[in-house]
Design a protein around this nucleic acid. Structure first.
Length: 626
RNA sequence: GGUCCGGUAGCUCAGCUGAAUAGAGCAGCAGCCUUCUAAGCUGCGGGUCAUAGGUUUGAAUCCUAUCCGGAUCACCA
């Protein structure tokens, strides 16, 4: 049990016994005492006074007197200010609680699946993927540390029109080039052809778009023509400025894009792919293979891994059984043209298509099927989807549909919705070339780490290999901490003009603190085994540190409950800061006495452990020296 | 237009299951390396918590409205 939980427990018991009123630990509000007051933890009394018909002062005095008298092992002292009962924890109580806090969490028996990363195979990973990967990996690690059985999964979007685009461009332009022959990383190689395709598509779209704007519809198929004519009529006869007009123009442009020869070619290739045409399948396998080789290198470098990888090419047909089931249950209905829908208007949403009139699946259908398959293979209590907040609506619909189908796993689905990473100029747009490439960014960070290390470090005994590793550790530490230290659900700003900081509330700050501690421990020749500490004459800064370390287990629990790695980042920073204040004031190796030295060495050891473990839950390594 | 999310110091963010005078980092200013790593430490300045009402003993936090920014409402994935 944690210290705070224990304080709540004895306070509740005290109230029951003092006033004959049933009180539970949940009724007691305990905060950390503000630094300007004396004490460690504070019981806030206001909520209790109405029921007990006591003044806050009187209640505080009585409760404080009772607690210190009944639990001298727990409380050394108390004071009451207004409605706040400030309690000083007995120094001797700390070692026991510390042991609890640093023990691994008890197993919950719960199975949790975490899906993250989920790349497309037509282009390399970018900054947005990094936030996703770091979040997903970290949440999985935190859930595991909190005692859950965790399975990390990834759904690779390896089929569809976007892959066909890369394939078409490669066939036309590459002359048989490969990543090897061009010296490019596979995912960048394939991404290059995707960009080529988009360039050509844009070039072909423009003249067609102009013709549509002038009411010329030749070259369109019947469906496109009907649609284009309708949009055109509205636009031409109405207001030519404003939002509606812009929407009409966007519609026309979309039609123009679809009607270009290159786009038709890509669509044709998708049809061939679905038909299993061997030459298309072969090329598809080859290009995806290049991409996977590239992804693997990046994943390895940034430390992403998965227990199971799903491929959309193998799951995109799933979900049709669920559609049939839904039709039988009356959850879905069929329209005259044969398409299948669900009406969610009663839930405040819209009607949603789940099967096209030609019987093929849409995105949501595939996700229904995949959810089902995941549950069959790993009967989870919770399934976390790490997906950007632009898909909030989609995930809401998915969960609602599964609930209506009566899927037993529907309630366990949780969308870990995170905000997009934006540039000072707004969202990253691949069409405008403002995407920050993941590999480039990591390379850049490593260079900065090297420069910073040259400026600051006094370590000359490192060899080339060790230095390289150190730069990677620091660079990824800075990058991961930067992307994880803010609340996941908030969008965040990344300014490519400014390099990610290495001072203050950063990963390297914590890594540095760890390295300093390790340096002391090396010099002391101290073992790694825990030593029984004596808290005789504990000083304020020593106690602050002990109280903070004691909060480790609770912090992990909270981070797991909220799926929020930033809680770990904030905690690690506070620990490091508190340690640094202690470090500046109290010598360890030259302590006043042997007893003090032993205590402080143990403080160092435990601080190091907590920092290393907290950072590990963020996927960040800590160096022995830096 | 409907729905959802956000607006806290010059900048980037904590705090949001209500509780003491709203906290960090960066940037600015002033100090601290003959002592365990100065990527550090200490101090100073900096706020109408978007706005207006409401609930409450108590509101940055809960409710309502308004303003501003964003996402979304595809037979794309």
């Amino acid at each position: 049990m944690s210290l705070v939980a224990r304080i709540k427990e004895v306070s509740a018991a005290a109230i029951s016994s003092l006033y004959g009123v049933a009180a539970s630990a949940d009724d007691i509000l305990v905060n950390q005492t503000k630094p300007e007051f004396e004490g460690d933890y504070t019981v806030v009394l206001f909520a209790l006074i109405k029921q007990l018909r006591k003044s806050p002062e009187a209640l505080g005095q009585e409760l404080g007197a009772y607690l210190t008298a009944q639990h001298p092992e727990l409380f050394a002292n108390f004071n009451v200010i207004k409605g706040f009962l400030n309690l000083s924890v007995a120094d001797a109580a700390l070692p026991g609680f510390l042991r609890n806090a640093l023990e691994p969490a008890a197993a919950t028996g719960k199975k949790v699946m975490v899906e993250y990363s989920s790349p497309n195979t037509n282009k390399p990973l970018h900054l947005g993927h990094l936030r996703n990967n770091f979040l997903g990996w970290s949440v999985a690690a935190i859930l595991e540390a909190a005692g859950n059985e965790v399975m990390k999964t990834c759904i690779v979007n390896d089929r569809g029109i976007h892959i066909c685009k890369s394939m078409i461009a490669w066939k036309k332009l590459a002359n048989g080039a490969t990543p090897q022959s061009s010296g490019m990383k596979g995912d960048h190689f394939v991404g290059h052809y995707y960009v080529q395709f988009e360039t050509e598509l844009k070039a072909q779209t423009e003249p067609l778009f102009e013709r549509l704007k002038n009411g010329k519809f030749d070259g369109l198929d019947d469906a496109q023509r009907t649609k284009a004519e309708a949009i055109y009529r509205n636009w031409a006869n109405g207001d030519r400025k404003g939002e509606a007009a812009q929407k009409a123009l966007d519609g026309l442009k979309e039609i123009a894009r679809a009607a270009t020869p290159v786009m038709k070619e890509a669509q044709g290739m998708l049809v061939d792919w679905e038909a299993g045409k061997p030459e298309v399948i072969d090329l598809w396998k080859q290009m995806n293979g290049w991409v996977y080789a590239g992804f693997d290198a990046t994943y390895q470098r940034i430390g992403s891994d998965f227990d199971k990888t799903y491929y959309e090419s193998q799951t995109y047909l799933l979900g049709r059984d669920l559609v049939n089931e839904g039709l039988e249950k009356g959850v879905f209905f069929r329209k005259d043209d044969g398409s299948v829908w669900i009406d969610l208007t009663a839930d405040g949403l819209d009607e949603k298509l789940v099967l096209r009139k030609d019987g093929t699946s849409v995105y949501i259908t595939q996700d229904m099927g995949l959810a089902q398959q995941k549950y069959e293979q790993f009967p989870y209590d919770q399934s976390i989807y790490v997906i950007a907040d632009e898909q909030n609506y989609h995930m809401k619909v998915l969960q609602l549909i599964l609930e209506k189908l009566g899927a037993p796993y529907a309630g366990g689905i949780h969308h870990l919705s995170y905000g997009m990473v934006e540039l000072p100029t707004g969202r990253m747009k691949s069409r405008e070339g403002t995407v920050v490439d993941a590999d480039d960014l990591v390379d850049e960070m490593v260079q900065v780490a090297e420069k910073e290390t040259r400026e600051h470090s006094k370590i000359e005994e490192f060899g080339e290999v060790e230095l390289k590793e150190l730069y990677e550790t620091i660079a990824l530490g800075a990058l991961k901490f930067f992307l994880l230290h803010v609340d996941p659900k908030k969008k965040m700003l990344f300014n490519p003009e400014e390099t990610i900081k290495f001072q203050g509330f950063t990963g390297p700050f914590i890594q540095y603190t760890y390295a300093r501690i390790r340096s002391i421990l090396r010099k002391a020749g101290a073992g790694t085994a825990a030593v029984e500490i004596s808290t005789e004459g504990l000083l304020r800064k020593e106690k602050d540190l002990l109280l903070l370390i004691e909060q480790y287990a609770e912090t992990v629990k909270g981070a797991a409950r909220d799926f929020n790695p930033s809680a770990m980042a904030n905690y690690a920073f506070t620990v490091a800061k508190t340690y640094n204040a202690f470090y500046a004031e109290h010598p360890v190796l030259q302590a006043e006495s042997e007893a003090k030295k032993a205590l402080r060495l143990e403080l160092c050891r435990q601080t190091a452990q907590v920092l290393r473990d907290s950072m590990a839950l963020l996927g960040i390594r800590v160096p022995e020296r830096m």
